[in-house]
Design a protein around this nucleic acid. Sequence first.
DNA 1: TATGAATGAGTGTTCATTCAT
DNA 2: TATGAATGAACACTCATTCAT
Lengths: 200, 200, 200, 200
Amino acid sequence: MERKRQQRGMERMESLLEAAALVFAELGYDRATTNLIAARAGVSPGSLYQFFPHKAAMAEALASRYAANFEAVHAKVLTEGIEKVELGLFIDLVVDPFLAFHRDAPAFETLLSAGVMPGNVEVLKQAFARRLAELFTMRCPKANPKEMQVAVEVSMGIFNGLLPLLTKGSPASKRRAVVELKCVLERYLAPILDDGSRVR
Amino acid sequence: MERKRQQRGMERMESLLEAAALVFAELGYDRATTNLIAARAGVSPGSLYQFFPHKAAMAEALASRYAANFEAVHAKVLTEGIEKVELGLFIDLVVDPFLAFHRDAPAFETLLSAGVMPGNVEVLKQAFARRLAELFTMRCPKANPKEMQVAVEVSMGIFNGLLPLLTKGSPASKRRAVVELKCVLERYLAPILDDGSRVR
Amino acid sequence: MERKRQQRGMERMESLLEAAALVFAELGYDRATTNLIAARAGVSPGSLYQFFPHKAAMAEALASRYAANFEAVHAKVLTEGIEKVELGLFIDLVVDPFLAFHRDAPAFETLLSAGVMPGNVEVLKQAFARRLAELFTMRCPKANPKEMQVAVEVSMGIFNGLLPLLTKGSPASKRRAVVELKCVLERYLAPILDDGSRVR
Amino acid sequence: MERKRQQRGMERMESLLEAAALVFAELGYDRATTNLIAARAGVSPGSLYQFFPHKAAMAEALASRYAANFEAVHAKVLTEGIEKVELGLFIDLVVDPFLAFHRDAPAFETLLSAGVMPGNVEVLKQAFARRLAELFTMRCPKANPKEMQVAVEVSMGIFNGLLPLLTKGSPASKRRAVVELKCVLERYLAPILDDGSRVR
DNA sequence: TATGAATGAGTGTTCATTCAT
DNA sequence: TATGAATGAACACTCATTCAT
């Protein structure tokens, strides 16, 4: 009984977040209206406010959820170990899961690049950075942490900057964009993560 | 007399665009209100509409103006010729003027990355792309145009993605960001623009 | 429950239309402000827009409603038949219901004489004309339709032109205006609708 | 010198009133903007306010001017005497000058039928009424003044109500409208103004 | 608890009027 | 005196948020 209620609540919240993600992706945060989100979720505007105190909270929740989902993103990679693979493969192992994730996270781009956003959308960026640092460090443990941090931020910037290319245009151009993204990262990271001792 | 009026008009328009640029940069296009822009320009809301038919027109005017100013950005470089310089220097010659430009164009970032924007804000992106293509082609005339186009778009994406790093944080980190931006571009572009025949 | 809501909605809409009618009648369409109408209806400006997409829609709705109410206006007369009555009585039977209707339709005059109006306020004029044609034709079926159409338009013009006399001034002068309206119509229509064969 | 200035002023005022008349006729009083009127008159908005303290004053001035011009409208008729002519001819002599006047007074209709108008636009109606009374009395001096007054007001209402028919539609329908207007008036006025003693 | 009608401050925009030149 | 840029109150309309049901 109590269970059921909680579950119903969870489902509602779920569909609200889903709707919010789609609307944010479509219109951007500012142009997205809470009424539209509620409607898209098949819920009344009032109900929305039982789960989120205000519009900004939806963006935050979405960011948190995306951040949380990040944990699973590189599960396989992280357990299998990637320290000995060739850089190109490493890049694949890092980027592909991100791209896969991106496909199911409609508002990812919006939340990441949001110029002016309310509240803690930062958590998403932070999770992103943390994961990247984790992966980079795993592959190259002896690197200077400060330098690694820079590499992480720059890599995120690159990812961010190329995201529009990855989602807009023809399938062919999108595929090409993936190639280019990896290429940019590989060339940029090679001197940082690659010490030449690995299998080629 | 007539002169004076025209000049006053120009000054007003100038200060309105300036205010608009600042407010757009601060709040983003959507959250920027025409009344705030007018107030920031020390002008009444009605006055704003003597110069711009609607809010969107300010963004467009700003974009056009930035695009127009682009023409001058690489004046020296373009006349002096850059086909024979080392790639690192080439990158400096390309990037530094952009950065200098960026410093005086507060809304540059906002207008470039604008998710949903009205009207012809595209002109800015286009001018950016055109200039980059021009510079790249000048240095490497025999390159495949299609490939060059891709390189241009990717370079713009990189620039775009790293812009936040260039403007936020400590002076030191900003300086570092410049170094990294150039580094990323150089490593990415080397195989494309560099055929090894140049002075090192 | 659902019922109640719908009824409340209907009531609100009703009171909004009523307020709109009064304000239109008082100030004319242009000078009527949506905020004033809302206030007069005891409602917030936002509420108004839950029922009408824009100001013009209120005028249209009012016109449609008036037009619809026209159907009932001559109910008795139309069923009882008026072909055999004396012209003076016919005029009474035509005019009196119009006047009765007019008393409960504050914006009737405004909507009818509206110089520049948005959208389909025409429906009201059309319903008016249709009804008049119906009545005229019923009484005088063999009349030339083209001529009948002219008679209808002229009669409407007369009605329209004398409306102010019917609503302004002392009760006595208003009563007199009714007499005159009927007199004008009777004298104008006699040669058209009267063939002398009727009971006197 | 002083003359010249005054004359220039008069000309300006003239062209302003002319422009105002056109704009009022086109858009109605409310939708007419002072800036548009000024522009149409080839004059600055500021200049307009040197001649008229506010928008309403233009309508008033126009009404006064129209009222003043009324004096001349029936000049010939009034001096020649119309007491002995047949009613149909009398109506022609009364109506035709009005229609001629109406052709050169673009805002006549707007000012006459103006639902809600500021200031003394009434003067126009009054002049109209006075003239009509004058003509009616001239033809039928022994009539009861009160009754005459009623006949005048009703006639004005008729005129007013049929004005739109006189100005809209095809030339043929406009000609027809004139015929109908006279017809309505003649039939209405016959028992009032006609005692049967006149030449037929 | 869920609803969706209601709210009202705030938005972009207009325009009668003023005033520095 | 004529100008037209400048003003700012007001308008139509929106939307995040609330609350009676």
